[in-house]
């Protein structure tokens, strides 16, 4: 499946953002817009997840799969 549809790797984006990157993000400082860094990071991941899925979908579209 991944050979024909490599763009599906985008779907692992949230796993990288939430889970793999956690050791780097598990901190209070620096705060971003007042948000403690961990919360800023997880909020960012939440906003980027739809983007990652969209990129997978766009890949399917471009190859006429979806």
């Amino acid at each position: 499946m991944l050979k024909k549809r490599p763009h599906l790797l985008w779907l692992l984006g949230p796993y990288v953002l939430y889970l793999a990157a956690l050791p780097l993000a598990d901190r209070v400082h620096p705060t971003v817009l007042g948000l403690p860094f961990l919360f800023f990071w997880l909020l960012l991941a939440t906003l980027l997840t739809p983007v990652a899925v969209f990129l997978a979908w766009r890949g399917d579209r471009a190859r006429g799969r979806a």
Binding site: L11, P14, Y18, L38, L42, T46, T49, A56
Partner: peptide, 20 residues
């Protein structure tokens, strides 16, 4: 505090693989 965020994390990851 922070541990409750697992709810956000698993739902986001789950929705993403739900694409397939």
């Amino acid at each position: 505090g922070a541990p409750v965020l697992y709810v956000v994390a698993y739902l986001s990851c789950g929705y993403a693989i739900g694409y397939v």
